[in-house]
Amino acid sequence: MNARTPSGLLTGLLRAVRTYPRRSPLTFGYVVLLLTGHVWVENLLAADRADALRDHISTNLDNLHDHPVTALLGSALLFDGTLTEILSTGFGGTLITLGLGVCCCLAWAERRFGSLRAAAVLLGGHIGATLITTAVILLALRHGWYPESVRQASDYGISYGAQTLLALATLAVPRWARLPWAAFVVAWPLSGDGEWPGPLPAFTTVGHLLAAALGFTLAITVALTASRRRAEGLGPAPAER
């Protein structure tokens, strides 16, 4: 059967879904954890307790000063979006971060680089972009570019890590599509911005752009390393699990 026919494509899609847990066990487990946490917070937990939990794991300045480890790790266990309001911008963000970033790009990274390295990229993007954004916020507060209320702002979820993976996945698309893909990765965080509070966009937009920069830097490093290994006749680096 020709894989390019509709029936062949459907067969290939069903095979990919059926083998997904086996081929990408880390990603599958993480997605299940995210979905379970989302349902628990949004539907099962009392509204005041859910709000208190979100406030506690938000990676804002006050929380990072008071309980940095809990905020950084707890923030990576929920996604800030919706699964039901399909006409909202929040659902679009869910499709990009959870759908493309985690379900697709993390799974690709896991298969190509191994589970440990894929997890390192996810956490490195999440923590690295958060900490660099914190430095930007402190600088902006010193110059009056952000209001003081940003210290207690709600900011949790997986989107920085997902953004890093989206940028890294530039390596996974055909060469002719790499520039459009990179443009999409950079442009989507800017698409929902309203008025800038000063010379900088909202701090979450800054965080997404920084996360993308981390992912692009890693992609360039991987590409250069692979090119050097080919030139030396060593072949590709083996994946680690």
Rank of each mutant, 00 (worst) to 15 (best):
residue 162 A to P: 01
residue 14 L to P: 06
residue 51 D to R: 11
residue 193 D to M: 15
residue 11 T to W: 10
residue 120 A to H: 10
residue 204 T to H: 12
residue 140 A to V: 04
residue 57 I to H: 00
residue 232 E to T: 14
residue 234 L to P: 09
residue 106 L to H: 04
residue 195 E to R: 14
residue 184 F to C: 02
residue 83 L to M: 06
residue 124 G to K: 03
residue 196 W to G: 04
residue 95 L to T: 08
residue 36 T to L: 14
residue 25 P to V: 00
residue 85 E to Y: 06
residue 6 P to Y: 02
residue 7 S to C: 10
residue 33 L to T: 11
residue 12 G to E: 10
residue 172 A to V: 00
residue 71 A to W: 09
residue 190 L to T: 04
residue 81 G to F: 06
residue 188 W to C: 09
residue 222 V to N: 10
residue 113 F to Q: 03
residue 33 L to W: 08
residue 73 L to W: 07
residue 7 S to D: 15
residue 238 P to T: 05
residue 167 A to T: 15
residue 135 A to D: 04
residue 232 E to G: 10
residue 184 F to V: 04
residue 239 A to R: 13
residue 123 L to G: 07
residue 174 P to E: 06
residue 180 P to G: 02
residue 133 T to Y: 07
residue 9 L to W: 12
residue 38 H to K: 00
residue 233 G to C: 04
residue 192 G to M: 13
residue 116 L to N: 12
residue 220 I to N: 12
residue 24 S to Y: 08
residue 114 G to F: 00
residue 141 L to S: 02
residue 71 A to M: 09
residue 143 H to W: 12
residue 13 L to V: 14
residue 85 E to S: 09
residue 126 H to G: 00
residue 74 G to C: 06
residue 165 L to G: 02
residue 151 R to K: 07
residue 135 A to M: 08
residue 172 A to L: 00
residue 156 Y to K: 12
residue 39 V to Y: 05
residue 29 G to P: 02
residue 224 L to G: 05
residue 225 T to A: 13
residue 15 R to G: 13
residue 136 V to G: 02
residue 107 A to Q: 01
residue 89 T to V: 14
residue 147 P to F: 02
residue 209 L to S: 07
residue 153 A to C: 12
residue 41 V to Y: 06
residue 73 L to Q: 00
residue 29 G to T: 01
residue 189 P to T: 10
residue 188 W to S: 09
residue 70 T to I: 12
residue 28 F to Y: 03
residue 127 I to P: 00
residue 9 L to N: 10
residue 87 L to A: 11
residue 236 P to T: 09
residue 128 G to Q: 00
residue 197 P to R: 07
residue 25 P to K: 01
residue 129 A to Q: 08
residue 202 A to K: 14
residue 232 E to V: 13
residue 218 L to C: 11
residue 122 L to V: 09
residue 110 E to W: 01
residue 206 V to Q: 05
residue 132 I to A: 11
residue 149 S to P: 08
residue 52 A to L: 04
residue 213 A to Q: 01
residue 174 P to L: 03
residue 199 P to G: 05
residue 57 I to K: 01
residue 179 L to Q: 08
residue 88 S to W: 11
residue 52 A to Q: 09
residue 229 R to Q: 10
residue 221 T to G: 13
residue 222 V to R: 15
residue 135 A to N: 03
residue 49 R to A: 14
residue 185 V to Y: 05
residue 144 G to Y: 06
residue 128 G to Y: 03
residue 97 T to C: 15
residue 78 L to T: 03
residue 113 F to Y: 14
residue 225 T to D: 15
residue 103 C to M: 15
residue 56 H to Y: 13
residue 50 A to C: 02
residue 79 F to R: 00
residue 164 T to E: 08
residue 106 L to Y: 03
residue 60 N to C: 03
residue 177 A to V: 02
residue 183 A to V: 14
residue 219 A to C: 04
